[in-house]
Computed example of a mutant assay.
Amino acid sequence: MPLDVRPATAYDDVRALVGPKSPAANVCWCLSYRLPSKLNKELRGPARGEYVAGLCREEPPPGVLAYENGEPVGWAAVAPRANTSFARNRKIPHVDDVPVWSLWCIRVRPGHRKKGVSHALIAGAVEFARERGAPAVEAYPLDNLGARVDLTMAYPGLRRNFERAGFVHAADTTSVLAGHPRVLMRLDLR
């Protein structure tokens, strides 16, 4: 399957992957780790989508999108860790003072799973960060040890997929999601 991964500048495509069916819904929009908690709680309904539309016009855009035959089929959120709540997260440690980028959400549209989209998104997110000067990329995937993971809670990705992409285990965390520990995986780009 030929996949094209590009910066997430097309708001309608981002909305198709992480936006709600109803514009008034208060879904994540992949903003939970991007915004300070207070602002995240204040943005309600359509204001969340408007905020994301603004992010799509900024440099860097909020992540990358995977396309198959021009159709958006996957999303990955990636940004400098300093610009996310991971900068202050007590459960996800800082390994050192390197200004890493964080890759924290991978979403693949139903009907396109098990086709390599998440692998393409990880590679695309790494390239996106590299092109913008990132010295390293971190991810905080589930260490599910092969156990089944509820797809709703699999958004941080799975450890084995990051290992396939060349990431290495850099630290354990005290974060647990859907009953699975999260680990800090890192890929040095220098």
Rank of each mutant, 00 (worst) to 15 (best):
R107W: 06
G166A: 10
R113S: 08
A170R: 03
A120G: 13
G124L: 10
M1D: 02
D188H: 10
K114R: 15
A24W: 04
V52N: 00
T174H: 09
P141C: 09
G166I: 02
R159P: 03
K91N: 13
R88D: 14
C28M: 01
P93I: 10
L142P: 03
P7N: 08
M185F: 09
M153T: 06
E59D: 14
F128E: 01
R186N: 01
D4E: 14
D4C: 09
V73K: 06
T174A: 12
P72M: 12
T9I: 03
Y140G: 01
P93Q: 09
C105H: 05
D13L: 10
S22A: 12
K41F: 11
T173N: 04
E71N: 12
G54H: 01
R186Y: 05
H94W: 13
V14Y: 10
G146I: 09
V5I: 15
P80V: 03
Y155E: 00
A170S: 05
G111M: 00
W101N: 05
A178Q: 03
V108L: 07
E138H: 02
N83V: 11
A129F: 09
R6V: 13
N69Q: 15
G166C: 05
K115G: 00
G116M: 10
P62C: 01
W101D: 06
R44T: 13
E58L: 14
V100K: 02
A134I: 09
L17C: 12
I122L: 06
R34N: 04
R164C: 08
V14F: 11
R186C: 08
L177R: 02
S85N: 10
H119Q: 14
L3Y: 07
P7C: 00
A125Q: 04
P2W: 04
R182C: 15
F162M: 12
L39I: 10
F86M: 11
G74T: 11
A8S: 08
N161W: 12
R164A: 13
C56N: 08
A47S: 15
L17P: 12
E131F: 00
I92Q: 04
A10G: 01
D12S: 02
A136R: 03
A136S: 11
S102K: 09
D96R: 05
R186M: 05
W75A: 03
H169T: 03
R88M: 08
N69A: 15
V126S: 07
L121T: 08
R109I: 01
W101Q: 06
L31M: 03
G157Y: 12
R160E: 15
K38C: 07
L187Y: 04
E58N: 14
D143L: 14
R130S: 10
E58M: 14
A47E: 15
R182V: 06
E50Q: 15
D97Q: 13
R109A: 13
Y67Q: 06
H119P: 06
D13N: 03
P36D: 15
R132Y: 13
W104K: 05
G63K: 06
E131N: 13
D13A: 13
N26M: 06
G111L: 06
A16L: 11
R107S: 05
R44Y: 06
D188A: 12
W75P: 10
V18M: 12
K115S: 07
W75V: 05
K114G: 00
H94K: 15
R109F: 06
D97M: 07
